[in-house]
């Protein structure tokens, strides 16, 4: 469980796409009547819409016949549900034991120095989100980070800075 955070973002104008429930309803229909569907439905809906905003959660609730507060209970319990928009690149800095003793704390500092974001935050341009995660299970190559699905290991703080700059300049997209 993450530290206490504001659950629902400040009110935002929704785009028509964000209020198009076709995908949401289709996902919910797949799980109609299935036991234990809450978590997989939320995972798939989040994948489809980016993050779990208020109107979306309400829609899921109507479909599954579950109250929003029950859904928010589940959403806020698990680290991998997001109630706020996230950046194009999610930087996961591993804070597992092996990474910790090899200085991964400094890598989070480098992210802050470069983009001004701390754990759980997204920069105003929505390019980077920083997530400190407990262990990504690649301890043999500590310290390790993941940027979206790509793993980078055996880093020094300055190497990590270079990698972040490469992502920021679009060099990594090639």
């Amino acid at each position: 469980m993450a530290e206490v955070k504001a659950v629902v973002e400040e009110v935002q104008e929704r785009t028509p796409e964000e209020l198009d429930w076709t995908k949401c309803d289709a996902i919910c229909a797949q799980y109609a009547g299935a036991k234990g569907a809450t978590i997989p439905v939320l995972q798939k809906v989040q994948d489809a819409y980016g993050y779990l905003y208020k109107e979306l959660v309400e829609r899921v609730g109507e479909n599954l016949n579950i109250s929003s507060h029950t859904l928010y209970g589940v959403i806020t319990f698990y680290a991998q549900f997001y109630t706020k928009p996230r950046g194009k690149y999610v930087i996961r800095v591993c804070r597992g034991t092996a990474c910790h003793v090899k200085g991964s704390g400094r890598i989070s500092e480098v992210v802050f120095e470069e983009f001004g974001i701390r754990n759980g935050e997204t920069d105003p341009d929505k390019i980077f989100t920083l997530e400190e995660v407990s262990c990504i299970g690649a301890c043999g190559m500590a310290p390790v980070i993941m940027v979206n699905d790509k793993t980078h290991g055996n880093l020094t703080p300055e190497e990590s800075r270079k990698i972040f700059k490469d992502y920021a300049s679009g060099k990594m997209d090639e």
Binding site: M1, K35, G36, I39, G73, V74, Y78, A79, F81, S134
Partner: peptide, 20 residues
Amino acid sequence: AGAFVCGEETALIASIEGER
């Protein structure tokens, strides 16, 4: 969905059931 405590077997069961 990301919760260490789910490694505990009764918590894991609660999680499969779709709960906290």
